[in-house]
Simulated assay, not measured.
Amino acid sequence: MRAVVLSSYGPPPELSVKEIPAPALKPGHVRIRVHAVGFGFPDALMVAGKYQVKPEAPYTPGNEVAGVITEVASDVTEFKPGARVLAMAGQGGLAEECVAPSHTLIPLPGSMSMAAAAGFLVNYGTTYHALVQRANIQPGETLLVLGAAGGVGLTAIEIGKALGARVLAGASTPEKLELAKRHGADAVFNYTQDTIKAKVMEFTGDRGIDVAYDPVGADFAEQVVRSMAWNGRYLVIGFAGGKIPAIPLNLALLKGCSLVGVFWGAHTRKEPAVHASNLKALFDLFESGKIKPHVTELEGLDRFTEALDVLNTRRSTGKVVIRVAED
């Protein structure tokens, strides 16, 4: 079968499409004909050797896999060949076939395309957990979203609006701001040109923001914390800006606000019942049309280099999805 293989971390990482043997089917696993693979900023960091998880090379990247089951291990009874599923494969997804643990599989509704499914779980799951469990956002509260046209940013706008929040969205280009507005943002601004605090105070009537959703970090983080309202919650989502910020802790004291970490992967393992409830809520929102996954879709395994480039240069909108086979 054809697969993307990382032979060496480099720098730069040595990646290419190769013919390799199909993976063996292990107990508790299923074999999936891959249709689409979600590829996000954590994946780009992983192949660069800069993520908190560093698989031993050679290996095939790709975690979020949407496809059709072709074979199940003898001890797997809850899934059958022919089922359309979304899998958290860990690695091995950027291939024509992958093998994934059956306990990670999620049946797909017939109304969800493979491309939408491949861009769904990590981004929407992270955001729902962040806004509901970590921030306890309430109807009528204000929500600031940075990186608002990115993979998680758009989900924060959609879910924030679905939960009754007023959303101020920040992005870096006019095109991204327009996309944020189309996904429901009440107001938008360019944080590379405008002062974050000034825009927050304008939006909130000088009150400050209730919940901040920040996947960017870098030098923007301190500006956001300085814009928080009393009892505000600043959600630490990630550091796509390339630098982990050092925030003066006296700001949390003076603002009476909380700095709240969001680690969705650990949440799914430590709180599986809550995760399952979140998934049900998310699929209900999808079926009702309140969330509509936006993907940057690239056709074919050979376009993995383009996927890396648009992520590393911050040109992607929504989730980058690599199409491997037709639905």
Rank of each mutant, 00 (worst) to 15 (best):
V4H: 06
K54M: 15
D186W: 09
L253E: 14
S227N: 14
I159Y: 02
R315W: 08
K270S: 15
A169Q: 03
Y191L: 05
I159W: 00
A44F: 08
L235G: 04
I244H: 07
S74C: 03
L86E: 06
K243T: 15
A148S: 00
P174Y: 04
G164H: 07
V122Y: 10
A24I: 12
V200K: 03
Y9W: 14
R303A: 09
A266Q: 14
G261W: 02
D210N: 09
P58K: 08
T192E: 11
F120C: 01
E78Y: 14
Y234C: 13
H275M: 11
G147D: 05
V53G: 15
F39A: 11
Y51M: 13
P27L: 03
P215S: 10
A246F: 08
Q52S: 15
G265T: 09
P55Q: 10
D186H: 09
I237C: 11
E326M: 12
E19P: 04
Q52P: 15
A57E: 07
V236Q: 11
E299K: 12
I244Y: 12
I20P: 01
T173C: 05
P27K: 02
T195M: 14
I159H: 03
V72T: 12
L251P: 01
A36F: 12
T296G: 02
D284E: 07
K280E: 15
P42D: 00
I247N: 01
V34E: 08
A240F: 12
T204W: 09
P23Y: 06
T60Y: 09
F120S: 02
E287R: 01
A198R: 11
V85A: 05
A100E: 07
D219H: 12
V324F: 09
P58V: 10
S113D: 09
Y234K: 14
I20F: 01
G125R: 03
G170W: 05
N123V: 07
T104L: 05
C257H: 06
F120L: 04
A100W: 07
L282I: 02
F286L: 11
P27G: 03
W230Q: 15
S258H: 10
P11T: 14
S102D: 09
I237K: 03
H275Q: 12
L253F: 14
G67E: 09
A252M: 15
R207M: 01
L86D: 09
V17K: 04
I32A: 06
E97R: 03
A273S: 13
Y234F: 10
G217T: 02
N123E: 05
G82L: 04
N250R: 14
F263P: 11
A180C: 04
L25G: 11
A118K: 04
L282K: 10
G153F: 06
G92Q: 13
V17S: 04
D302R: 11
L308G: 01
G67D: 09
S277C: 00
E71I: 03
I69K: 05
T155R: 03
G28W: 03
L308Q: 04
P109N: 08
T313A: 15
G119K: 01
L94Y: 06
A252F: 13
V167R: 01
P245E: 02
R315E: 07
